[in-house]
Design a protein around this nucleic acid. Sequence first.
RNA 1: GCCGAAGUGGCGGAAUCGGUAGACGCGCCGGAUUCAAAAUCCGGUUCUGGCAACAGAGUGAGAGUUCAAGUCUCUCCUUCGGCACCA
Length: 866
Amino acid sequence: MQEEYDATSVESHVQDVWNANQAFEVTEDETRPKYYCLCMFPYPSGSLHMGHVRNYTIGDVLSRYKRMQGFNVLQPMGWDAFGLPAENAAIKNNTAPAKWTYQNIDEMREQLQRMGIAYDWSREFATCTPEYYRWEQWFFTQLVEKGLAYKKMATVNWDPVEQTVLANEQVDAEGRGWRSGALVERRQISQWFLKITQYAEELLEETEKLDGWPDAVRTMQRNWIGRSEGVEFDFALADGDVAGESAIRVYTTRPDTVAGVTYMAVAAEHPLATHAAESNADVQAFVDECKKTGTSEAAMEKLEKKGVPLGIDAINPVSGEKVPVYVANFVLMTYGTGAVMSVPGHDQRDFEFAKKFGLPIKQVVQSTNEAVDVSEAAFTDKENTVSINSGQFDGLDFSACFKATADFLAANANGDKKVNYRLRDWGVSRQRYWGCPIPIIYDKDGNAHTVPEQDLPVVLPEDVAFSGVNSPIKEDPNFFNTTVPGTNEPGTRETDTFDTFFESSWYYARYACPDADAMLDSRANYWLPVDQYIGGVEHAVLHLLYARFFHKLMRDVGLITSDEPFTRLLTQGMVIAETFYRDDDGKPEYFNARELDLTYDDKGRINGATLKADGKPVTVGRIEKMSKSKNNGVDPIEMIDKYGADTVRLFSMSDSPPHQSLEWKDGGVEGMNRFLKRVWREVSRLPSDAGQHLFDQEELNDEQKALRRKTHETIAKVTDDIERRYTFNTAIASMMELFNEASKFDDRSNSGFAVQHEAYGALIRLLSPFTPHITHEMWAGLGYESALIDEAWPEVDEEALVRDSITLVLQVNGKRRSEISIAASASKDECEAAAMADENVIKNIDGKTVRKVIVVPGKLVNIVAN
RNA sequence: GCCGAAGUGGCGGAAUCGGUAGACGCGCCGGAUUCAAAAUCCGGUUCUGGCAACAGAGUGAGAGUUCAAGUCUCUCCUUCGGCACCA
């Protein structure tokens, strides 16, 4: 070993050794337990960012650790290659999305390989290839035949200038299209849906069993599915049929409050609103205004609550009173029946609306412990309550009144107890080019026919030019003109493509058998489910729910046998960094730290920045997620060139636990680099035959025992931190502590060498999942001939952990006053006696009476005195 | 608006089951080495007072439970993530 650590040469050499041995290619092996570790695959934007580095390092640490534990480890990598950015780049740079994407993949693969992740590259694939997407086309045809995929009208953002559908992301905060600046409108078009609601109950039930998932993610999924129990029933219209309807059907989870209904509200798209708009200009204007809101839920909910009376009354089936019907912007056509009953006394939103429009507020539920005034705020409790002003239901509590009212509504208002879900069916149609073509052909009557298996894949033409923003295949007769399957009749292909979540919902399974001549083959059942899945917390609901849904669909088609795709889940936090900007004209211009000269105050905090180019000041902004728009990214490749991949990997794991955000700090990176250089130097100075020195635990002196104890305490801690806690930052801290002790240890005796060699041998193996290159070389430097990746994880020697004495903290009235060293075997009474004899304790209880003494064995003694 | 998370020294964070608040790293201060600097090494570093021993304060704010609260309970504030066509 050279005395100086040169990361670049070490890393390229070690990577060559791995590549030459195909060290990470795996096959099914029934003799060993399998471990499938997967990181969310990247969108090939063209450059690796720190979020990727963090994500893939976490996966590699776990994979390499499990390999050393004896598992048959699969860790694959691929490309989530369809998506909007390729189209944006195509429009901007006049290149075909396919070409742009494949180039990006080549660049990113090269960058990724410099990180030294233990991937089985033989399984790599990109989702934009027909070899991949043909199987999801096939799968979709199966779903159509099973009735799990269907067509219906759905709302989209329509840009009236570009004459195209926009993604939510392409609509700005003011509701304008990103390119045209025109006000976006809501428009209804016919689209394909998957019946995820049919699996809502199973998805919900199994959420409870996912105990390897973070509770926060499970809670979010549970809330997203949003199961509720309630009653669906009719409010009869007071003055006969309107628009062919005799009643308004509503769904409520609070049938106990029906007597308190004082008005009703329907969505802007509800048939009654549409009908009223025909003869009422106010309603028409309001419905038109509602169309100008974006389609996102956040945009709708943030709206000021508004409504217009339809001039229609309905009859409250419990009280018999006439109540007015409004059209309101907060009612969603997509949830329940598109109409709600409003109980301002017992629902806060209804309350606010009633106050605004001067509608009556009626109390029908009373608290049994305190006075309630519903003219001040809605009373929404369901416990310790009793019904009032509700006729025959007076005096009942929530659950009794729920049941009695439900029975009454069943008999008198077409009532039906119903379970509802907030979850809506998954709309998979996208009016975009760079995606998987939906394998459907329409005949001249517009009937949909699935493309037969032998005609798959429907290949997306890759050699296209964009004229404007519209999808080229929508304007390409060579693509859409075809014949109806099984006939000679002319037909037209579907020109919409799948949501890109379609590809990412099953890729994890395809890695098991990337070359299979079917969607999946039997190898999938060897590798699945994924034992550990790792990715950004922003995917906590959508991607993870869709993948769970797809897994169940694939199970029910007979492709796999497991119920859930991901046994354990780790959601990592964002990588963040300081931002710097100038805001001269209301549109901030962001600068990267590299373009700036920074000044610091005497505490080391940044207190000023000037632009190198013009020497003028720049505002120091807040710390935000690394992004192109904030120009606060740090290029991983630059960092690897400067410090080496091991340092970058180690820093990305060291500074905060994986689920929290990670602040990128140059000083922190330098600190990790210093640590690795120090370890390298110490190891290079050790004799490479130190493994020959033996020791006898009984014969060791106190210092030797102390270092052995530290070695084995560290093994125990690092193992627990990786395996159970996922706190890599504390694992790294404890390895540094071990190094700090081992490097200070300068005992040149035979036993001293042996104990020190044991410490470094353990440290190198513990560190190897984090920094695999440098540890590979150091392992050889210690005199071992085997490759480090084939070594076993170090084991704890319980004998080394034994302590003779411990530190006992002494408190008086809960305040720490002293500490003493005492035999580890001391009894409670001995601890108490020793505490009472301590000088500082005596001083602090002087003149007081001891009321109580609490002894926590091995920790502390607390003396309560006054 | 709804759902979820976070808030601890100058900074990132640690404190795992209610038991020594501040591990480890960064920064800063002092020293060694050097013609000098970088690098490296050694020591110090929550705040206030004190030469020190030690004393007092202290985990976003406010209350509560307990011998003991960063940790448990309640109320509130701030910041961040998701909200179905970004991936």
